[in-house]
Nucleic acid binder design. Structure first.
Lengths: 201, 201
DNA sequence: CTGACACGCTGAACAGCGTTAGGAAAAACT
DNA sequence: AGTTTTTCCTAACGCTGTTCAGCGTGTCAG
Protein backbone atom coordinates (compact mmCIF):
# COMPACT_ATOMS: atom_id res chain seq x y z
CA UNK A 1 0.00 0.00 0.00
CA UNK A 2 1.18 3.49 -0.78
CA UNK A 3 1.24 6.28 1.74
CA UNK A 4 -1.20 8.31 -0.32
CA UNK A 5 -3.83 5.62 -0.54
CA UNK A 6 -6.91 5.21 1.59
CA UNK A 7 -10.37 6.71 1.84
CA UNK A 8 -10.81 10.43 1.41
CA UNK A 9 -7.68 10.70 -0.65
CA UNK A 10 -9.34 11.35 -3.98
CA UNK A 11 -11.43 14.09 -2.44
CA UNK A 12 -8.43 15.65 -0.78
CA UNK A 13 -6.56 15.78 -4.04
CA UNK A 14 -9.47 17.36 -5.86
CA UNK A 15 -9.81 19.82 -3.01
CA UNK A 16 -6.16 20.79 -3.21
CA UNK A 17 -6.37 21.25 -6.94
CA UNK A 18 -9.41 23.46 -6.69
CA UNK A 19 -7.78 25.51 -3.94
CA UNK A 20 -4.73 26.03 -6.13
CA UNK A 21 -6.93 27.02 -9.04
CA UNK A 22 -8.74 29.59 -6.90
CA UNK A 23 -5.47 31.06 -5.65
CA UNK A 24 -4.16 31.28 -9.19
CA UNK A 25 -7.26 33.15 -10.32
CA UNK A 26 -6.98 35.39 -7.26
CA UNK A 27 -3.45 36.42 -8.23
CA UNK A 28 -4.60 37.14 -11.75
CA UNK A 29 -7.44 39.37 -10.60
CA UNK A 30 -5.29 41.12 -7.99
CA UNK A 31 -2.68 41.88 -10.61
CA UNK A 32 -5.39 43.55 -12.65
CA UNK A 33 -7.37 45.39 -9.95
CA UNK A 34 -4.89 45.79 -7.12
CA UNK A 35 -4.67 43.60 -4.07
CA UNK A 36 -7.60 45.32 -2.36
CA UNK A 37 -9.77 45.21 -5.46
CA UNK A 38 -10.42 41.49 -5.20
CA UNK A 39 -14.10 40.58 -5.25
CA UNK A 40 -15.23 37.15 -4.10
CA UNK A 41 -18.11 37.09 -6.56
CA UNK A 42 -15.79 37.81 -9.44
CA UNK A 43 -13.18 35.39 -8.15
CA UNK A 44 -15.81 32.69 -7.90
CA UNK A 45 -17.10 33.32 -11.40
CA UNK A 46 -13.52 33.11 -12.64
CA UNK A 47 -13.37 29.47 -11.51
CA UNK A 48 -16.99 28.67 -12.48
CA UNK A 49 -18.64 29.00 -9.11
CA UNK A 50 -20.74 31.36 -7.04
CA UNK A 51 -19.29 33.32 -4.17
CA UNK A 52 -20.61 31.17 -1.28
CA UNK A 53 -18.96 28.09 -2.75
CA UNK A 54 -15.55 29.58 -2.09
CA UNK A 55 -16.26 29.11 1.59
CA UNK A 56 -15.94 25.37 1.25
CA UNK A 57 -12.29 25.92 0.30
CA UNK A 58 -11.36 28.95 2.38
CA UNK A 59 -12.76 30.08 5.70
CA UNK A 60 -12.92 33.68 4.58
CA UNK A 61 -11.48 36.25 2.21
CA UNK A 62 -8.81 36.92 4.83
CA UNK A 63 -7.80 33.25 4.64
CA UNK A 64 -7.25 33.63 0.90
CA UNK A 65 -5.02 36.63 1.51
CA UNK A 66 -3.23 34.59 4.16
CA UNK A 67 -2.30 31.85 1.71
CA UNK A 68 -1.19 34.40 -0.88
CA UNK A 69 0.88 36.21 1.74
CA UNK A 70 2.68 33.04 2.81
CA UNK A 71 3.22 32.04 -0.82
CA UNK A 72 4.81 35.41 -1.47
CA UNK A 73 7.35 34.89 1.29
CA UNK A 74 8.09 31.40 0.06
CA UNK A 75 8.84 32.83 -3.38
CA UNK A 76 11.04 35.51 -1.85
CA UNK A 77 12.91 32.90 0.13
CA UNK A 78 13.50 30.90 -3.04
CA UNK A 79 14.98 33.93 -4.77
CA UNK A 80 17.21 34.76 -1.83
CA UNK A 81 18.38 31.16 -1.67
CA UNK A 82 19.62 31.46 -5.24
CA UNK A 83 21.81 34.46 -4.45
CA UNK A 84 25.49 33.68 -4.31
CA UNK A 85 27.46 35.09 -1.41
CA UNK A 86 31.01 36.10 -2.29
CA UNK A 87 32.95 37.04 0.86
CA UNK A 88 35.62 38.62 -1.32
CA UNK A 89 33.13 41.01 -2.92
CA UNK A 90 30.72 42.14 -0.22
CA UNK A 91 29.64 45.23 -2.15
CA UNK A 92 28.83 43.23 -5.25
CA UNK A 93 27.00 40.64 -3.22
CA UNK A 94 25.00 43.27 -1.41
CA UNK A 95 24.21 45.17 -4.61
CA UNK A 96 22.96 41.99 -6.23
CA UNK A 97 20.81 41.27 -3.21
CA UNK A 98 19.23 44.72 -3.27
CA UNK A 99 18.61 44.51 -7.00
CA UNK A 100 17.06 41.08 -6.64
CA UNK A 101 14.72 42.39 -3.97
CA UNK A 102 13.65 45.37 -6.07
CA UNK A 103 13.09 43.08 -9.05
CA UNK A 104 11.04 40.77 -6.89
CA UNK A 105 8.86 43.68 -5.77
CA UNK A 106 8.45 45.10 -9.27
CA UNK A 107 7.57 41.72 -10.74
CA UNK A 108 4.19 41.82 -9.00
CA UNK A 109 2.70 44.99 -7.63
CA UNK A 110 -0.10 43.04 -6.00
CA UNK A 111 2.36 40.78 -4.23
CA UNK A 112 4.35 43.79 -3.04
CA UNK A 113 1.21 45.45 -1.70
CA UNK A 114 0.22 42.27 0.07
CA UNK A 115 3.59 41.53 1.64
CA UNK A 116 4.98 44.95 2.49
CA UNK A 117 2.17 47.49 2.65
CA UNK A 118 -1.05 47.59 4.60
CA UNK A 119 -3.07 47.87 1.43
CA UNK A 120 -5.94 45.71 2.64
CA UNK A 121 -8.23 47.49 5.09
CA UNK A 122 -8.73 45.48 8.25
CA UNK A 123 -6.54 42.61 7.20
CA UNK A 124 -3.27 41.53 8.69
CA UNK A 125 -1.56 38.17 8.31
CA UNK A 126 -2.64 35.44 10.69
CA UNK A 127 -0.07 34.15 13.14
CA UNK A 128 0.57 31.16 10.87
CA UNK A 129 1.18 33.34 7.83
CA UNK A 130 3.20 35.78 9.90
CA UNK A 131 5.40 32.92 11.08
CA UNK A 132 6.28 32.17 7.45
CA UNK A 133 7.39 35.75 6.95
CA UNK A 134 9.46 35.75 10.11
CA UNK A 135 11.16 32.53 9.10
CA UNK A 136 11.91 34.05 5.71
CA UNK A 137 13.36 37.16 7.36
CA UNK A 138 15.56 35.13 9.68
CA UNK A 139 16.84 33.02 6.84
CA UNK A 140 17.70 36.18 4.92
CA UNK A 141 19.79 37.50 7.81
CA UNK A 142 22.27 34.67 7.79
CA UNK A 143 24.10 35.43 4.50
CA UNK A 144 24.72 39.00 5.62
CA UNK A 145 26.32 37.76 8.81
CA UNK A 146 28.99 36.25 6.62
CA UNK A 147 29.60 39.67 5.11
CA UNK A 148 30.28 41.16 8.51
CA UNK A 149 26.83 42.60 9.16
CA UNK A 150 26.38 41.11 12.59
CA UNK A 151 24.78 43.86 14.63
CA UNK A 152 21.03 44.24 14.82
CA UNK A 153 21.13 48.00 14.19
CA UNK A 154 23.29 47.50 11.11
CA UNK A 155 20.82 45.06 9.75
CA UNK A 156 17.94 47.40 10.59
CA UNK A 157 19.66 50.12 8.63
CA UNK A 158 20.05 47.80 5.67
CA UNK A 159 16.41 46.80 5.87
CA UNK A 160 15.36 50.44 5.81
CA UNK A 161 17.63 51.23 2.88
CA UNK A 162 16.54 48.26 0.79
CA UNK A 163 12.83 48.61 1.46
CA UNK A 164 13.08 52.35 0.91
CA UNK A 165 14.63 51.89 -2.51
CA UNK A 166 12.02 49.32 -3.48
CA UNK A 167 9.03 51.32 -2.28
CA UNK A 168 10.23 54.52 -3.93
CA UNK A 169 10.79 52.61 -7.14
CA UNK A 170 7.30 51.16 -7.12
CA UNK A 171 5.52 54.30 -6.00
CA UNK A 172 7.24 56.87 -8.22
CA UNK A 173 8.67 55.05 -11.23
CA UNK A 174 7.01 51.64 -11.50
CA UNK A 175 8.09 51.01 -15.08
CA UNK A 176 11.56 52.54 -14.92
CA UNK A 177 14.73 52.04 -12.89
CA UNK A 178 15.26 55.43 -11.25
CA UNK A 179 15.90 53.85 -7.84
CA UNK A 180 16.90 50.38 -8.94
CA UNK A 181 19.97 51.76 -10.67
CA UNK A 182 21.10 53.19 -7.32
CA UNK A 183 21.52 49.68 -5.89
CA UNK A 184 25.27 49.49 -6.39
CA UNK A 185 25.81 53.01 -5.06
CA UNK A 186 23.69 52.22 -2.01
CA UNK A 187 25.62 49.01 -1.42
CA UNK A 188 28.93 50.87 -1.57
CA UNK A 189 27.70 53.55 0.79
CA UNK A 190 26.39 51.00 3.23
CA UNK A 191 29.37 48.64 3.22
CA UNK A 192 31.81 51.52 3.59
CA UNK A 193 29.88 52.71 6.60
CA UNK A 194 29.72 49.31 8.30
CA UNK A 195 33.37 48.52 7.59
CA UNK A 196 34.62 51.85 8.91
CA UNK A 197 32.59 51.52 12.05
CA UNK A 198 34.00 48.09 12.73
CA UNK A 199 37.54 49.37 12.36
CA UNK A 200 36.86 52.40 14.51
CA UNK A 201 35.28 50.57 17.43
CA UNK B 1 -17.52 98.43 2.98
CA UNK B 2 -15.23 95.60 4.01
CA UNK B 3 -13.80 93.07 1.60
CA UNK B 4 -15.64 90.26 3.34
CA UNK B 5 -19.06 91.87 3.22
CA UNK B 6 -21.75 91.34 0.65
CA UNK B 7 -24.36 88.71 -0.11
CA UNK B 8 -23.41 85.11 0.18
CA UNK B 9 -20.72 85.82 2.71
CA UNK B 10 -22.53 84.48 5.76
CA UNK B 11 -23.34 81.31 3.86
CA UNK B 12 -19.79 80.88 2.73
CA UNK B 13 -18.50 81.23 6.26
CA UNK B 14 -20.96 78.71 7.65
CA UNK B 15 -20.10 76.38 4.83
CA UNK B 16 -16.40 76.66 5.53
CA UNK B 17 -16.94 76.01 9.20
CA UNK B 18 -19.01 72.92 8.55
CA UNK B 19 -16.44 71.64 6.09
CA UNK B 20 -13.71 72.11 8.66
CA UNK B 21 -15.81 70.34 11.28
CA UNK B 22 -16.35 67.39 8.95
CA UNK B 23 -12.64 67.15 8.17
CA UNK B 24 -11.80 67.28 11.85
CA UNK B 25 -14.20 64.43 12.59
CA UNK B 26 -12.77 62.51 9.63
CA UNK B 27 -9.25 62.72 11.06
CA UNK B 28 -10.55 61.55 14.43
CA UNK B 29 -12.28 58.52 12.95
CA UNK B 30 -9.34 57.69 10.66
CA UNK B 31 -7.00 57.80 13.61
CA UNK B 32 -9.21 55.22 15.31
CA UNK B 33 -10.07 52.93 12.38
CA UNK B 34 -7.25 53.48 9.92
CA UNK B 35 -7.42 55.70 6.87
CA UNK B 36 -9.33 53.14 4.83
CA UNK B 37 -11.80 52.40 7.62
CA UNK B 38 -13.63 55.68 7.22
CA UNK B 39 -17.38 55.28 6.74
CA UNK B 40 -19.45 58.15 5.42
CA UNK B 41 -22.48 57.11 7.46
CA UNK B 42 -20.44 57.16 10.63
CA UNK B 43 -18.68 60.38 9.68
CA UNK B 44 -22.03 62.02 9.05
CA UNK B 45 -23.46 60.86 12.34
CA UNK B 46 -20.36 62.26 14.06
CA UNK B 47 -21.33 65.75 12.91
CA UNK B 48 -25.08 65.25 13.38
CA UNK B 49 -26.05 64.44 9.82
CA UNK B 50 -26.94 61.57 7.52
CA UNK B 51 -24.52 60.34 4.91
CA UNK B 52 -26.08 61.98 1.82
CA UNK B 53 -25.85 65.42 3.44
CA UNK B 54 -22.08 65.23 3.30
CA UNK B 55 -22.39 65.53 -0.46
CA UNK B 56 -23.45 69.14 0.04
CA UNK B 57 -19.95 69.86 1.32
CA UNK B 58 -17.82 67.40 -0.60
CA UNK B 59 -18.29 65.99 -4.05
CA UNK B 60 -17.37 62.48 -2.92
CA UNK B 61 -15.46 60.49 -0.35
CA UNK B 62 -12.41 60.85 -2.58
CA UNK B 63 -12.73 64.64 -2.32
CA UNK B 64 -12.57 64.36 1.49
CA UNK B 65 -9.40 62.29 1.21
CA UNK B 66 -8.08 64.90 -1.21
CA UNK B 67 -8.45 67.72 1.29
CA UNK B 68 -6.88 65.63 4.03
CA UNK B 69 -4.01 64.70 1.74
CA UNK B 70 -3.28 68.32 0.86
CA UNK B 71 -3.57 69.34 4.51
CA UNK B 72 -1.01 66.69 5.41
CA UNK B 73 1.52 68.09 2.99
CA UNK B 74 0.90 71.61 4.23
CA UNK B 75 1.65 70.40 7.77
CA UNK B 76 4.80 68.67 6.57
CA UNK B 77 5.91 71.80 4.79
CA UNK B 78 5.40 73.82 7.98
CA UNK B 79 7.59 71.39 9.93
CA UNK B 80 10.30 71.44 7.30
CA UNK B 81 10.22 75.23 7.21
CA UNK B 82 11.05 75.28 10.92
CA UNK B 83 14.19 73.19 10.46
CA UNK B 84 17.40 75.17 10.75
CA UNK B 85 20.05 74.56 8.13
CA UNK B 86 23.61 74.79 9.47
CA UNK B 87 26.10 74.61 6.57
CA UNK B 88 28.89 73.97 9.11
CA UNK B 89 27.14 70.85 10.44
CA UNK B 90 25.61 69.03 7.49
CA UNK B 91 25.39 65.73 9.35
CA UNK B 92 23.58 67.27 12.29
CA UNK B 93 21.26 69.14 9.98
CA UNK B 94 20.48 66.02 8.00
CA UNK B 95 19.99 63.91 11.12
CA UNK B 96 17.55 66.46 12.53
CA UNK B 97 15.69 66.47 9.23
CA UNK B 98 15.36 62.68 9.18
CA UNK B 99 14.25 62.59 12.80
CA UNK B 100 11.69 65.31 12.19
CA UNK B 101 10.28 63.36 9.27
CA UNK B 102 10.00 60.16 11.28
CA UNK B 103 8.34 62.03 14.12
CA UNK B 104 5.93 63.57 11.66
CA UNK B 105 5.01 60.14 10.34
CA UNK B 106 4.66 58.58 13.79
CA UNK B 107 2.52 61.43 15.06
CA UNK B 108 -0.38 60.23 12.92
CA UNK B 109 -0.54 56.78 11.42
CA UNK B 110 -3.62 57.73 9.41
CA UNK B 111 -1.84 60.73 7.92
CA UNK B 112 1.16 58.59 7.05
CA UNK B 113 -1.03 56.01 5.35
CA UNK B 114 -2.81 58.72 3.39
CA UNK B 115 0.30 60.58 2.28
CA UNK B 116 2.85 57.86 1.68
CA UNK B 117 1.12 54.53 1.18
CA UNK B 118 -1.60 53.43 -1.18
CA UNK B 119 -3.78 52.38 1.70
CA UNK B 120 -7.05 53.47 0.12
CA UNK B 121 -8.25 51.09 -2.60
CA UNK B 122 -9.00 52.90 -5.79
CA UNK B 123 -8.07 56.32 -4.52
CA UNK B 124 -5.21 58.47 -5.61
CA UNK B 125 -4.81 62.20 -5.06
CA UNK B 126 -6.44 64.49 -7.62
CA UNK B 127 -4.17 66.63 -9.74
CA UNK B 128 -4.84 69.60 -7.45
CA UNK B 129 -3.94 67.66 -4.31
CA UNK B 130 -0.97 66.10 -6.07
CA UNK B 131 0.28 69.56 -7.01
CA UNK B 132 0.39 70.46 -3.33
CA UNK B 133 2.55 67.43 -2.61
CA UNK B 134 4.89 68.21 -5.50
CA UNK B 135 5.27 71.79 -4.31
CA UNK B 136 6.07 70.52 -0.83
CA UNK B 137 8.65 68.12 -2.24
CA UNK B 138 10.32 70.83 -4.30
CA UNK B 139 10.47 73.17 -1.38
CA UNK B 140 12.09 70.43 0.70
CA UNK B 141 14.83 69.94 -1.87
CA UNK B 142 16.19 73.44 -1.62
CA UNK B 143 17.78 73.26 1.88
CA UNK B 144 19.68 70.12 0.90
CA UNK B 145 21.11 71.89 -2.12
CA UNK B 146 22.85 74.16 0.34
CA UNK B 147 24.39 71.11 1.99
CA UNK B 148 25.93 70.01 -1.27
CA UNK B 149 23.28 67.51 -2.30
CA UNK B 150 22.75 68.83 -5.78
CA UNK B 151 22.44 65.74 -7.95
CA UNK B 152 19.08 64.13 -8.58
CA UNK B 153 20.34 60.64 -7.86
CA UNK B 154 21.84 61.74 -4.57
CA UNK B 155 18.53 63.20 -3.56
CA UNK B 156 16.73 60.06 -4.70
CA UNK B 157 19.01 58.00 -2.49
CA UNK B 158 18.24 60.26 0.46
CA UNK B 159 14.53 59.99 -0.21
CA UNK B 160 14.75 56.20 -0.20
CA UNK B 161 16.78 56.16 2.99
CA UNK B 162 14.53 58.55 4.88
CA UNK B 163 11.26 57.00 3.77
CA UNK B 164 12.67 53.54 4.42
CA UNK B 165 13.54 54.41 8.00
CA UNK B 166 10.13 55.94 8.58
CA UNK B 167 8.15 53.09 7.06
CA UNK B 168 10.13 50.43 8.92
CA UNK B 169 9.62 52.36 12.14
CA UNK B 170 5.88 52.55 11.64
CA UNK B 171 5.41 49.03 10.38
CA UNK B 172 7.59 47.14 12.84
CA UNK B 173 7.96 49.26 15.97
CA UNK B 174 5.22 51.90 15.96
CA UNK B 175 5.58 52.78 19.64
CA UNK B 176 9.38 52.51 19.93
CA UNK B 177 12.40 54.08 18.31
CA UNK B 178 14.24 51.11 16.81
CA UNK B 179 14.72 52.87 13.47
CA UNK B 180 14.36 56.46 14.63
CA UNK B 181 17.49 56.15 16.74
CA UNK B 182 19.44 55.24 13.57
CA UNK B 183 18.83 58.72 12.14
CA UNK B 184 22.22 60.15 13.10
CA UNK B 185 24.06 57.03 11.92
CA UNK B 186 22.18 57.15 8.63
CA UNK B 187 22.97 60.83 8.21
CA UNK B 188 26.67 60.18 8.79
CA UNK B 189 26.70 57.29 6.37
CA UNK B 190 24.93 59.30 3.73
CA UNK B 191 26.93 62.53 4.05
CA UNK B 192 30.21 60.65 4.04
CA UNK B 193 29.17 58.93 0.84
CA UNK B 194 28.08 62.11 -0.92
CA UNK B 195 31.15 64.06 0.19
CA UNK B 196 33.61 61.37 -0.89
CA UNK B 197 31.96 61.07 -4.27
CA UNK B 198 32.20 64.79 -4.85
CA UNK B 199 35.90 64.74 -4.02
CA UNK B 200 36.51 61.69 -6.19
CA UNK B 201 34.82 62.98 -9.31
C1' DC C 1 -25.42 -3.53 -5.61
C1' DT C 2 -27.53 -0.50 -2.42
C1' DG C 3 -28.49 2.46 1.37
C1' DA C 4 -26.29 6.18 3.93
C1' DC C 5 -23.46 9.72 4.69
C1' DA C 6 -20.67 13.61 3.51
C1' DC C 7 -19.30 16.90 0.41
C1' DG C 8 -19.84 20.52 -3.23
C1' DC C 9 -22.60 23.90 -4.59
C1' DT C 10 -26.65 26.74 -4.87
C1' DG C 11 -30.15 30.89 -4.32
C1' DA C 12 -31.82 33.85 -0.95
C1' DA C 13 -30.86 36.87 2.43
C1' DC C 14 -28.40 40.19 5.90
C1' DA C 15 -25.86 44.14 7.11
C1' DG C 16 -22.78 47.14 5.51
C1' DC C 17 -20.70 50.33 1.84
C1' DG C 18 -20.57 54.89 -1.55
C1' DT C 19 -23.68 57.27 -4.15
C1' DT C 20 -27.96 59.35 -6.53
C1' DA C 21 -32.77 61.22 -6.91
C1' DG C 22 -36.49 63.89 -5.43
C1' DG C 23 -38.80 66.30 -2.13
C1' DA C 24 -39.39 68.97 2.19
C1' DA C 25 -37.80 72.36 5.39
C1' DA C 26 -35.14 76.25 6.55
C1' DA C 27 -32.37 79.99 5.87
C1' DA C 28 -30.95 84.12 3.31
C1' DC C 29 -31.74 87.56 -0.04
C1' DT C 30 -34.82 90.97 -2.57
C1' DA D 1 -43.49 89.26 2.88
C1' DG D 2 -42.34 86.75 -1.07
C1' DT D 3 -38.78 84.40 -3.70
C1' DT D 4 -34.81 82.02 -4.32
C1' DT D 5 -31.12 79.32 -2.78
C1' DT D 6 -29.12 76.16 0.29
C1' DT D 7 -29.41 72.32 3.49
C1' DC D 8 -30.96 68.12 4.91
C1' DC D 9 -33.85 64.17 4.70
C1' DT D 10 -35.77 59.34 3.20
C1' DA D 11 -35.65 55.86 -0.16
C1' DA D 12 -33.29 53.36 -3.20
C1' DC D 13 -29.53 51.21 -6.40
C1' DG D 14 -25.75 48.24 -6.97
C1' DC D 15 -21.99 46.68 -4.81
C1' DT D 16 -19.34 44.17 -0.86
C1' DG D 17 -18.25 39.79 2.49
C1' DT D 18 -20.74 36.41 4.77
C1' DT D 19 -24.42 32.99 6.64
C1' DC D 20 -28.08 29.65 6.11
C1' DA D 21 -30.98 25.99 4.56
C1' DG D 22 -31.54 22.83 1.04
C1' DC D 23 -30.57 20.19 -3.10
C1' DG D 24 -27.99 16.94 -5.79
C1' DT D 25 -24.11 14.01 -6.42
C1' DG D 26 -20.00 11.43 -5.64
C1' DT D 27 -17.91 8.33 -2.34
C1' DC D 28 -17.94 4.86 0.87
C1' DA D 29 -19.30 0.62 3.95
C1' DG D 30 -22.12 -3.30 4.35
Amino acid sequence: MTATAGPGNIRERRRGQTRAEILQAAWRLCERDGIAGLSLRELASEVGMRAPSLYTYFASKAAIYDEMFAAGYRELEAIEADLEVDPDDPVGTLAASIEAFIDFCCASVARFQLMFTRAIPGWEPSSEAYAVSVASYERSVEPFMRLGIDEQRHFDLLTALTSGLASQQLANDPDGDRWRRLSREAAEMYMTHVTHERKGS
